[in-house]
Design a protein around this nucleic acid. Structure first.
Length: 294
DNA sequence: GTCCAGGTCGCGC
DNA sequence: GCGCGACATGGA
């Protein structure tokens, strides 16, 4: 069962997949030759499917073609769940027209932003939270390794090609235990953080996915995320971005270096100074930074 | 060996 | 609120 989703123009498929580095983290995969985004998903009913996602440019709109690979037939419910997940992952229900309008007075900004802003995210906030923890105080190469080992060792296999796996469930990570996360997955000192989050979610003590329902004020979202051990200001702001809020900057060493070099002749900059640079972008600050960098 | 990378915690002020 | 050292891992 395949399906297509139409997206209004302007839309930039390749940008939406690549503009956030998440495409490089398992179980996401990109095939350059066919320009295909592959991803394994474990559905709530337990079924593991492989998704093959392509962007198709059309004269009056853009469409996203999703092919579902599975070892048994996909039910109506499963199809609906897959559609919802793809819409979430690709941010097809977010409206960026106000940001594009803000770019209109600067041709250079407009050209960079055209059809973009839909940064890739994961199907669950749990996955994005774990991945964010894996980006802290380390190199990007190590982040890729940590997430790959997490998926390889604990992810649910896609039966026809068992080497392909979905992102592990909180239950599976919680069962694995701290020693496994440290010694085999090599999460380092992050292991207890990931374990605690996974355990809390698995035990129903923390309702992470409810935060995706778009119901709470941002201040409450922030508070809820900050209460997770291992998530500091950078991580919370990264996850707010994942939830579609771009007002807060996720300030990390990359952003510090960029602002210092670009605006302050290489002099060290504090957080207040960094925020002042993007102040004029209002609720779009983080995306303004992200695409200015590109 | 030392330093540090897409930070955060826990402490002491 | 701010400053500080510790923290696992692996590459330079």
């Amino acid at each position: 069962v395949d399906f297509e989703i139409k997206v209004a123009l302007p839309y930039h498929f390749r940008g939406s997949v690549h503009d956030h580095g998440w495409i490089q983290l398992a179980p996401n995969r990109w095939d350059e030759e066919s320009a295909t985004f592959w991803r394994v998903e474990k559905l709530t009913g337990g079924q593991v499917v492989l998704l093959e996602i392509n962007g198709i440019a059309q004269p009056d709109c853009h469409s996203i073609k999703v092919q579902i690979h599975s070892d048994n037939p996909t039910s109506e419910d499963e199809l609906a769940e897959i559609q919802n997940r793809v819409r979430w992952i690709m941010r097809l229900d977010e409206d960026f027209s106000e940001l594009y309008r803000l770019c209109e007075n600067c041709p250079e900004d407009l050209e960079k932003m055209a059809g973009r802003g839909r940064l890739l995210r994961s199907s669950t906030l749990f996955e994005d939270a774990v991945k964010t923890i894996c980006t802290t105080n380390t190199t990007w190469a190590q982040t890729i390794g940590m997430v790959r080992r997490l998926v390889e060792t604990l992810g649910e296999p896609y039966p026809p090609e068992p080497q392909l796996k979905a992102f592990p469930t909180p239950e599976r990570i919680a069962e694995a235990g701290a020693d496994f996360l440290k010694q085999t997955v090599r999460l380092g000192y992050r292991a207890p953080y990931v374990l605690q989050l996974a355990s809390e979610v698995a035990l129903g003590e923390r309702h992470l996915e409810q935060l995706r329902q778009n119901k709470l004020p941002v201040a409450d979202l922030k508070k809820a995320l900050k209460s997770i051990k291992g998530l500091g200001e950078y991580s919370v702001h990264t996850l707010l971005m994942c939830l579609g809020y771009y007002e807060e900057l996720a300030i990390d060493s990359i952003m510090r270096g960029y602002v210092s070099k670009t605006y302050y002749e290489g002099q060290p900059v504090d957080d207040k100074t960094i925020r002042s640079v993007f102040e004029k972008w209002g609720k779009w600050k983080y995306l303004a930074y992200w695409f200015e960098l590109k």
